[in-house]
Design a binder for these strands. Structure first.
Length: 511
RNA sequence: CGCGGGGUGGAGCAGUCUGGUAGCUCGCGAGGCUCAUAACCUCGAGGUCGCAGGUUCAAAUCCUGCCCCCGCAACCA
């Protein structure tokens, strides 16, 4: 696999960025950094979803035009990701003119193909919600939100012949067992698909909503927001030209949260089939975060804002916690106390301390110059092997999105290096002059271990890797290439900087 | 018979698909070291893997039944 086109959902801008969005971003950013460092042709797409009824309403409530509102919120998302150090390649907005053009082109093609027809929809409509409900969604025949009895309404709209592609979709899912992963979500989709698919209403009359993309074949309607939103994925590739599209789009890896499984596993692929595009390579579905055991919600007031966490703990610590403490695909619980525990246990005591004690000894015993490995012993190899194993394990885990496991592997290696210091006791040997060559060799092994740690940690802990590289006196791009050869570029006599604690220990979680 | 997730040493979790000495982090107890961020290292205590049956040479893992917990209005990854 030498190509990868990574996507996050484009976030709907009726809420501010929170823990959930951030998790998705961190996951994809980590994948992007990882694949880039492995030399893969990598593209990372994110953005904002800005059309639709809810945005129009929210804008009105804020006393702004929809476009003004969208500009403001989109900028907020973008700046939040910039502050988090997210390395996206393209930030798409569904209000971008190129996107609008792409959407209209594709919708026109699907229409020409005969997969869009004009029809009438009859359903139970709640005027308060401005949407239709199915009988199942109603509570005692009333709108669950407004407690009112919905009207039976008819509306004429355009429909996408989703039903036409059901068989083909089921066949694809069955032929590609890991196309939707983890498996529980694949099973859920196959469950949906046991029932006949209904065609999808893909228009809204302008009499009801104007904040959307106009249908290319009927100016009286705008496109249903989900079709508009899903097409962001191909849109961003298409604007880069046909060659880019042909090369990268089939390597698409979508990362989403479980709430939008149906749109991505059913609406999207059937629409792609109709449009004549290849399907994406994988749909990767993750779970939700609870906060201190409770559902995160505005009404409970427990929404975790990424900016607050970064301000309090730093980017890498927050990021580390999200990756280390969750299993991709399962729900996870965010507890600040646990974050502090991870910070102290893994980042400060294990990795940070290894950096500290190694550099400290290089300075104390060799004036900051990396000594030559003039006196090797067999135990030295165990440290090198630990990092080599870690690298192989990380590769295995990353291909399965097992971020927590990957980090575990990395920290097993740094832990091995910490034990090595006690086992070889260079600080004891240093008391006798004749042992100094051996002391130097031990420190050389440790400096190499630091370089390797930085290299392996870079996708997960980018700031930390940069700081380690700086402390080691290596060029800033030293972590860009991944792998165990990271160490080989440090010649004897190379000067390293004096240690600065990477992760000052935190005593207690703030209240 | 609504759907889904979960029940593994004191806490939080992994392992369950592809049965075969029950693992990780934290906490706890004892000892050690001093290069280091009150860190680090070693050893130890602590589990009938929700319950009951079944399959098997062998079950946390597969099968059956049962019990308990959580989520399923909206916001929303």
């Amino acid at each position: 696999m030498d190509r990868i086109y990574l996507t996050t959902p484009i976030f709907y801008i009726n809420a501010e960025p929170h823990l959930g969005h951030t998790y998705t971003m961190v996951v994809v950013d980590t994948l992007a950094r990882y694949w880039r460092s492995r030399g893969a042709d990598t593209f990372f797409l994110t953005g904002t979803d800005e059309h639709g009824e809810k945005i129009a309403e929210a804008a009105a409530a804020a006393g702004e035009s929809p476009k003004q509102f969208a500009d403001r919120l989109s900028a907020l998302f973008r700046s939040t990701w910039d502050e988090c150090g997210i390395t996206y390649d393209h930030f798409i907005r569904t209000t971008d003119p190129e996107h609008v053009r792409h959407v209209q082109e594709v919708v026109a093609r699907v229409h020409e193909r005969g997969d869009i027809y004009f029809g009438e929809y009859e359903g139970l409509y709640c005027t308060g919600c401005e949407r239709y409900y199915t009988e199942k969604e109603l509570v005692d025949g009333r709108c669950p939100d407004h407690r009112t009895v919905p009207d039976l309404r008819r509306e004429q709209n355009y429909f996408f012949r989703m039903s036409r592609y059901q068989k083909q979709l089921v066949a694809h899912i069955e032929a590609n067992p890991d196309w939707i992963r983890p498996e529980r979500f694949r099973n859920e989709v196959l469950g949906f698909l046991r029932e006949p698919l209904e065609d999808l209403s893909i228009s809204r009359p302008k009499s009801r909503l104007t904040w959307g993309i106009e249908l290319p074949f009927d100016a009286a309607f705008v496109l249903y927001v989900w079709i508009d939103a899903l097409l962001n994925y191909t849109s961003a590739a298409a604007v880069r030209g046909g060659e880019f599209f042909a090369r990268m789009w089939p390597a698409a890896e979508h990362v989403i949260a479980k709430d939008i499984l149906k749109t991505h596993a059913i609406y999207w692929p059937t629409f792609l089939m109709s449009a004549g595009f290849p399907l994406y390579r994988h749909l990767n579905v993750h779970g939700y975060w609870t906060v201190e055991g409770q559902k995160m919600s505005k009404s409970l007031g427990n929404v975790v804002a990424p900016r607050d966490m970064i301000a309090r703990y730093g980017r890498d610590s927050f990021r580390y916690f999200l990756l280390r403490e969750s299993v991709f695909g399962l729900d996870a619980d965010f507890r600040e106390e646990a974050l502090v525990g991870r910070y102290n246990g893994d980042l400060a005591n294990n990795l940070g301390n290894l950096v500290s004690r190694t550099l400290s000894m290089v300075h104390r015993y060799f004036g900051g110059e990396v000594p030559p490995a003039s006196c090797p012993e067999s135990i030295d190899r165990e440290v090198e092997d630990a990092f080599r194993s870690a690298e192989a394990e990380i590769d295995g885990h990353m291909s399965k999105l097992a971020f927590g496991r990957a980090l575990e592997s990395l920290f097993r290696a740094t832990d091995r290096a910490n034990k090595y210091i006690v086992e070889t006791a260079p600080f004891t040997l240093a008391k006798s002059k004749s042992e100094m060559p051996r002391v130097g060799t031990i420190l050389r092994v440790l400096v190499d271990a630091l370089a390797r740690s930085a290299s392996l940690a870079a996708p997960f802990l980018p700031d930390t890797a940069d700081r380690m590289v700086q402390l080691l006196g290596l060029p800033a791009d030293a972590t860009e290439r991944y792998g165990a050869d990271a160490a080989s570029r440090i010649p004897p006599g190379h000067r390293v900087n004096a240690p600065v604690p990477l992760f000052p220990r935190l005593d207690a979680p703030p209240a």
